[in-house]
Design a protein around this nucleic acid. Sequence first.
RNA 1: GCUCCGAUAGUGUAGCACGGCCAAUCAUGUCAGACUCUCACUCUGACGACUGGGGUUCAAAUCCCCAUCGGAGCACCA
Length: 496
Amino acid sequence: MNNLAPELIAELKEKKEPEKGLPPLDVKGDLVMRFAPNPNGPPTIGSSRGIVVNSEYTKKYNGKFIIRFDDTDPATKRPMLEAYDWYLDDCEWLGAKPDEVVIASDRIPKYYEVAVQLIEKGGAYVCFCEQEEFKALKDVKKACPHREQNEQRNLGYWKKMLSGDYKEQEAVLRIKTDIAHKDPAIRDWVAFRIIKTPHPRPEVSDKYVAWPLLDFEGAVEDHMLGTTLIIRGKDLTDSETRQRYVYDYMGWKYPETMHWGRVQIHEFGKLSTSGLKKAIADGTYTGWDDPRVPTIRALRRRGIRAEALRKFMIELGLGETDISLSLDTLYAENRKIVDPIANRYFFVWDPVELNVEGAEPKVAKAPLHPSRGGMREIPVGTKVFVCKSDVENLNDGERLRLKDLYNIQITGLSPLSAKFIGTDMDLVKKEKARIIHWAPPDGLKVRVLSPDGEYSGIGERGIEKELDNVVQFERFGFVRIDGVKGDEVVAYYTHK
RNA sequence: GCUCCGAUAGUGUAGCACGGCCAAUCAUGUCAGACUCUCACUCUGACGACUGGGGUUCAAAUCCCCAUCGGAGCACCA
């Protein structure tokens, strides 16, 4: 069979191994996709899904990946100036360097052009209703009086909207849809409103007072960018129906769309960008890369690898159900990458001093890595530090093994003391003595910042040479060495 | 209230478009054991799911209907 029809076998194998994670796409022609965040905060784990999935598809199908900043709300969801670069930086780190970067607030005049065309086609009108007033009418499928204004009037009003003649709230431009549409969410939606707060970007600042809303800006942009496939959160499913009115008036072709549900992460719960902003401002968190914060920057600082995050996001697939997941899977993925390369060191948290009577000063030798070879050397005298939790429930006379050093027997509990009883591994193998790790008294002062608090203690020398690397503190977990200052080391906790 | 949408083990997924090969895939998790001078890694084993009820059919996780549960939108937010 193999000889007769090798291509059949190959085909069978392919059928057996469907694409793990993302469903295959039916791409005809070019694929253009975009990830469109509002940079009103740094990219979060949630953003990474959008970045990874969009870029993964465009990679796979040789398409174009665009990042577009939907920053057209200078007031309520005011963009954060630093965040623009953070997005680009995190994208690059994730291996998702965009082919094109677009900033909506740079392209306002283009949106104005489309607005004028829509008005001329009778597809949009300037509405002076108060919000409540309009809603009341809309709820009973009734048009407001402004809906019937002719094009000339609308054009005049529109000019006045642009020139700043109206106050905020005084006038909006609405897209004429179907005022009796069965879904109230669709009825004559707002495309532009007036905001007199200057935009945070200095190049834009107070240049405009009429700002497009997302549905309008996105509609025009997706057409201009030639987007062929949109993947976005299901909170925007109705956008398609709304935006199609614009596309129909203009005679454009609407892109394909796909949606995904909300992602919630157990470890972080419901943290909103604005909530985080507040917590950072009041000092609850140290910044946007505090290990307790769900941003990509924080994960990076903790030593999560881009590949692990990518894989994690891809394997979520594209479901419309809301999902709630635990970072354990991400950690497992990361551990697979990091475990073979991370050097091992001793770090003693909550250190307790232990004197070992009868021990000769020596140099302990321990492998840098259990399977890779290379040794570290730790000079040690008669005094070591051990973890408080390891010696809390000891009995007098108990025998222990100090890992890679020697055996001891406890001779006193307070103060803690012990005596040297040899180096033979039989203590562990036959007597099943516990092995604990330790640190020399002249070690480094180490602080570990982790999602559930800070640990401080003493680490062996050598750690200071691992700046920026992920290492494993034995019996503690993986950490990334974040800073070294003299004899003081700061590490960020990666995971168990 | 109106309009959409979804439901497979603790979690996340595969399978559903073309019903049988599904007593249901993979990963993670949990438990047990092996290995190991780490409670890490690796290995072995166990645990664990088609929301419920009807219908169509020789045959349903897959198709249809109802119910239940969950979610989204109904903003001059994105």
